[in-house]
């Protein structure tokens, strides 16, 4: 279970998302939605501990922080680095091999199986720079598979990839949900959210609504979210708001 307690996250004292109170149950399949700049990716970074809260806290129950799997946006990765696909995917075994241990035959089999599971048979030896956007996303999903994590955070996993790839990767997400893992995904396609994600959280720099997807994605909530997207203001006064 994840508890967000009066959580405010931001950069340089400016909140990207503020005063967030929410509980995410173990085994949830949750979509985080909202307009651009709503604080969705920032929330994932806060849960991961990559960003220290300006106020409040994130409490992870039953999950060690280093065992959380995270799929970042592709723009955050350097695809020009001379690395092979299997080397990239092998990082998913970090919890087993760490920084020093060399890969065993068992590890190599696991990598091959993960590549097969995401439809990248025969791609192991290719440089990551030679992959298309969709293929690269499949490779990152293979890495998440190997992480075998109880909590999986996906930042815009289906952006700029074709329908077929998105469907294949959605099947993996459903599989993780079936295995009682907690999956939280930042998404933009509301139809996709309605079809595949039973719960949703609507953000617009603060919490607009959270709960069953049909309830959260009601017209009035979406309208409110659009209204609440505020601009970054250098002269903004100090926030005096306390926890709810």
């Amino acid at each position: 279970m994840i508890e967000l307690d009066n959580l405010t996250l931001g950069y340089d004292r400016h909140p990207a998302v503020h005063h967030l109170d929410a509980t995410i149950a173990r085994g949830s399949l949750l979509a985080v939605v909202g307009p651009n700049g709503a604080g969705k990716s920032t929330l994932l970074k806060g849960i991961l501990g990559l960003l220290r809260p300006l106020q409040g806290e994130v409490r992870l129950h039953g999950v060690v922080r280093h065992r959380v799997a995270y799929l970042p946006q592709q723009i955050d990765l350097d695809r020009t680095f001379p690395l092979r696909v299997d080397e990239l995917v092998s990082f998913g075994l970090w919890h087993r091999v760490g920084a020093l241990r060399s890969l065993t035959r068992h590890d190599r089999t696991a990598i091959a199986e993960a590549l097969a599971a995401v439809g990248l048979n025969g791609f192991a030896g290719r440089p990551i720079g030679a992959l298309s956007g969709g293929q690269f996303q499949r490779a990152l999903f293979a890495r998440v598979l190997l992480q075998d994590a109880p909590l999986i955070l996906l930042d815009e996993p289906f952006t700029a990839i074709d329908t077929r790839t998105a469907e294949d990767l959605l099947a993996l997400v459903r599989r993780w949900h079936g295995e009682a893992r907690t999956v939280i995904a930042v998404l933009h396609d509301l139809d996709q959210v309605r079809s595949h994600f039973p719960t949703a959280m609507l953000l617009a720099r603060e919490l607009v609504a959270a709960g069953p997807t049909a309830e959260v994605l009601r017209g009035e909530h979406l309208f409110r979210a659009r209204q609440m997207a505020e601009a970054h203001d250098e002269r903004a006064p100090v926030c005096r708001r306390r926890a709810a």
Binding site: H66, Y70, D76, F81, L83, F91, W94, A99
Partner: peptide, 23 residues
């Protein structure tokens, strides 16, 4: 030799290394 894997991971995907390891 000791830091090779963390260094490569940090070059390719710095946030990944920060999530899986204190290194």
């Amino acid at each position: 030799a000791l830091l090779f894997r963390p260094l490569v991971a940090e070059c390719v995907d710095p946030s990944f290394l920060r999530t899986v390891s204190p290194l």
